[in-house]
Simulated assay, not measured.
Amino acid sequence: MVSRISHTTLDAQDPYTLSLFWSAVLGYAEDPDDPNMPEHEENMIFSPDRSHRVLFIRVPEAKSGKNRMHFDLIPTDRTRDEEIERVRGLGATDVHDLREPDGGWLVMADPEGNEFCILRGDIERAEA
């Protein structure tokens, strides 16, 4: 027997706001039968096929230190740099630039400081 991941959980001071940010980044959505609300202690979003879920749980303390786990994102319909600009527009900030012309990534942070990386997109990978 093995285990499977039920969902990925992120602690948050404002789970509702983070659920909106990550919904926009990932193209995920809340459950229409159980909508996320600002006053909820937990807010969950689902991938379009509902195979992956991200749960945001309210905690009193702010994030401190570097994440031990993080998302590595690959843009599906644009380049890495185009996706970086889109995600910056959603409220992400740059943390550490490791981009190179033929690879690399940018480490970014969501509105509460959780790190994630954006790698080269599917379009760029197909051209290589």
Rank of each mutant, 00 (worst) to 15 (best):
F56A: 03
D122S: 10
R86I: 07
L98A: 15
R99T: 06
F46H: 15
G104N: 08
T17L: 06
S64L: 10
Y28M: 14
A92R: 01
E100N: 06
N67A: 13
P35I: 05
G91Q: 03
D94F: 11
D102T: 10
I45D: 00
V107G: 10
G104V: 04
K63D: 02
R80L: 05
E39Y: 12
L98V: 12
E61L: 08
L26A: 11
M37E: 15
D31C: 14
A24Q: 13
E100R: 14
R50N: 09
A128E: 14
S6V: 07
I84A: 01
S47F: 06
R120S: 04
D31F: 09
F21Y: 04
P15Y: 03
E115H: 11
H70Y: 01
G113H: 03
E82N: 09
K63M: 04
I45S: 05
R53G: 02
P38D: 12
I74P: 01
D11N: 14
E127K: 15
D33E: 14
M44A: 11
S23T: 06
T93V: 13
E83F: 09
P111M: 06
N43K: 01
K63L: 15
C117N: 11
D11P: 03
E83M: 14
N36C: 11
P15N: 05
H40Q: 12
I5C: 03
A29K: 13
D97Y: 06
P101G: 00
S6Q: 13
T76Q: 13
P75V: 00
E124I: 08
D94W: 09
D97M: 11
E124S: 05
M69Q: 10
L26G: 02
N43I: 02
T93R: 15
N67T: 04
W22M: 08
L119C: 06
P32Q: 07
Q13P: 01
L106R: 11
R88E: 12
L26T: 00
I84C: 10
S51M: 10
S23A: 08
H52P: 03
T9R: 14
T76W: 03
M37N: 09
A29P: 05
D49R: 07
M1S: 13
V54C: 03
